[in-house]
Design a protein around this nucleic acid. Structure first.
Length: 126
DNA sequence: ACAATGACGCCTC
DNA sequence: AGAGGCGCCATTG
């Protein structure tokens, strides 16, 4: 039975991590890969997600590229779908880019940490 | 077995 | 900031 495309284990781990992403938060392919125990397998994450059945309840839309850039082809149906879902969860998306700084999973910003670290309050960003 | 491709990432120009 | 190049990995032609 090798009807399984990629390593079922890695794939399962990846799916589990993605399923774990809290609503309203986003993370990156690389981060998911690392969390799944497969560092440097960002591409594998993308592959797994790309093969997700349409009926899947997985919050794949919470996974974006490094820096919050959306990895899907801009203008594609999937792309629009992701943007819509993210915004619906309160995630700001502008110019093909999600605000990872604000909604990043485990990001320093997102609550109390913002006060502790004063992220984005030191005038280092716009 | 080799070349090309892709929901990636980081570096350099 | 936009564009190009190289590294990585698994699938496909």
């Amino acid at each position: 039975m090798k009807a399984s495309p990629t390593n079922t284990q890695a794939a399962a781990a990846i799916l589990e991590v993605v399923a774990r992403i809290p609503r309203g938060r986003i993370t990156t392919y690389g981060a998911v890969a690392s969390r799944a125990g497969q560092p440097r397998r960002a591409r594998l994450v993308g592959r797994v997600l790309s093969q997700l059945p349409a009926a899947s309840r997985l919050p794949w839309h919470r996974v974006v590229g490094a820096g919050g850039r959306l990895a899907l082809p801009q203008g594609s149906a999937a792309y629009e779908r992701q943007v819509a879902r993210l915004r619906r969860e309160g995630v700001e998306v502008a110019r093909g880019r999600a605000d990872l700084r604000k909604h990043g999973w485990n990001s320093p910003v997102g609550g109390l940490d913002r006060w502790l670290w004063r992220v984005g309050d030191s005038g280092d960003e716009t």
